[in-house]
Simulated scan of single mutants.
Amino acid sequence: MRLVASDIDGTILGHDGKISARTIRAFQACRDAGVELVFVTGRPPRWLYPLEEQLGHSGVVICSNGAVVWDPAAGKPISSTALDITAVFEARRIIKSIRPDALFGAETLHGFHLEPGFIENETSELLGEFTPAPLDRTLTAADAVVKFLAITREGTPDEFLAEVGPAVAHLVATTHSAPRTALLEMSVPGINKAVTLAKYAESLGIEAADVVAFGDMPNDIEMLRWAGHGYAMASGHPEAILAAGQQAPHFDDDGVAQILEAKLAGEKV
């Protein structure tokens, strides 16, 4: 075990915004043993504060499902892969033709654009920071869209993905990470957590066989398959569990910490 790559939400971070003390100790033990740590998330860079505040992590974070490699210490991207603006609007048009109730948002390197109604809760802190407006009024060719979002209030995430994913596959790679909300996450075709993690590991001279990865949702599938030791959370999505082939115990039981503790102790897991 030379590199640990972990998803954040639902894997080490709970709905209460907390990382358990046991998990924090396990990551620190990895650091002390000389194991590299990288976090691989669908979150944008502006939402990485739990890593800094609770883990004291200042190393590389792979964000936006692989579209951005972020340097927290410098507060800027090391690299990024952005969607062409024409692909964004064409994907929006196609999804809207299939699901007229769909609403859209766009993460860029410099902020977040969202359509009116994208967020149901009008008291959300997000609406204090970003003003909803039609995307064709706020997005320009100069904006680097690293993740395009579509949401609907009807059905499940799996149903929404199955319905519209194939229709836009020539334009965007589509996945989801929300357990219950029908929210799709789109990026440049060929970009996912595994692709970017593989490049990062190669830059360190680390092979897939020496990587331990943790995740829980469909946006983790490629990463769990690529890593030599991919663990899906027992509390995770069935497709992630199937892809990984190995399970970490349930999130509520500090599953990531249990696996790391065992590996550091030289136990077979």
Score class of each variant (00 low, 15 high):
residue 34 G to N: 11
residue 16 D to M: 11
residue 62 I to L: 12
residue 34 G to A: 08
residue 29 A to V: 00
residue 57 H to W: 12
residue 151 I to T: 14
residue 252 D to L: 14
residue 244 A to V: 12
residue 16 D to T: 13
residue 186 M to T: 04
residue 77 P to K: 07
residue 41 T to N: 03
residue 237 H to P: 03
residue 150 A to I: 02
residue 167 A to K: 08
residue 15 H to T: 15
residue 220 D to R: 07
residue 135 L to H: 03
residue 87 A to F: 03
residue 92 R to Q: 15
residue 129 E to K: 14
residue 116 P to G: 02
residue 163 E to Y: 05
residue 238 P to T: 10
residue 185 E to N: 00
residue 131 T to W: 09
residue 17 G to P: 08
residue 159 E to F: 09
residue 171 L to Q: 03
residue 124 S to R: 07
residue 84 D to M: 07
residue 28 Q to S: 14
residue 233 M to R: 02
residue 70 W to V: 06
residue 5 A to N: 07
residue 107 E to W: 10
residue 24 I to R: 15
residue 218 P to A: 08
residue 169 A to V: 09
residue 60 V to G: 01
residue 31 R to V: 08
residue 204 L to I: 05
residue 95 I to E: 05
residue 187 S to N: 11
residue 105 G to E: 02
residue 124 S to C: 10
residue 78 I to G: 01
residue 221 I to Q: 02
residue 30 C to G: 06
residue 169 A to Y: 02
residue 28 Q to P: 06
residue 226 W to S: 10
residue 65 N to K: 05
residue 145 V to C: 01
residue 13 L to Y: 02
residue 53 E to I: 12
residue 42 G to A: 15
residue 214 F to E: 12
residue 55 L to S: 09
residue 256 V to Q: 06
residue 44 P to G: 12
residue 5 A to E: 08
residue 153 R to V: 08
residue 130 F to I: 00
residue 255 G to H: 00
residue 62 I to N: 06
residue 268 K to S: 15
residue 3 L to C: 06
residue 59 G to N: 04
residue 262 A to T: 13
residue 79 S to M: 12
residue 133 A to G: 09
residue 243 A to P: 06
residue 133 A to S: 14
residue 266 G to Q: 09
residue 56 G to E: 10
residue 50 P to H: 11
residue 199 K to A: 15
residue 186 M to S: 03
residue 208 A to L: 10
residue 227 A to P: 05
residue 158 D to Q: 15
residue 102 A to D: 05
residue 140 T to L: 11
residue 88 V to E: 04
residue 164 V to A: 07
residue 208 A to H: 13
residue 240 A to F: 00
residue 211 V to G: 01
residue 79 S to L: 11
residue 80 S to W: 14
residue 130 F to R: 08
residue 34 G to H: 11
residue 265 A to P: 05
residue 133 A to Y: 08
residue 25 R to H: 13
residue 31 R to H: 04
residue 5 A to V: 12
residue 191 I to S: 05
residue 108 T to M: 02
residue 167 A to V: 04
residue 160 F to Q: 01
residue 101 D to G: 11
residue 263 K to G: 08
residue 251 F to G: 02
residue 221 I to V: 15
residue 247 Q to K: 14
residue 217 M to A: 15
residue 146 V to W: 03
residue 2 R to H: 14
residue 197 L to N: 06
residue 206 I to R: 07
residue 67 A to H: 06
residue 133 A to E: 14
residue 232 A to K: 06
residue 42 G to M: 00
residue 175 T to Y: 01
residue 186 M to L: 10
residue 31 R to N: 02
residue 220 D to L: 03
residue 71 D to E: 09
residue 214 F to T: 09
residue 71 D to I: 08
residue 17 G to C: 11
residue 49 Y to L: 14
residue 185 E to K: 00
residue 214 F to P: 04
residue 256 V to N: 02
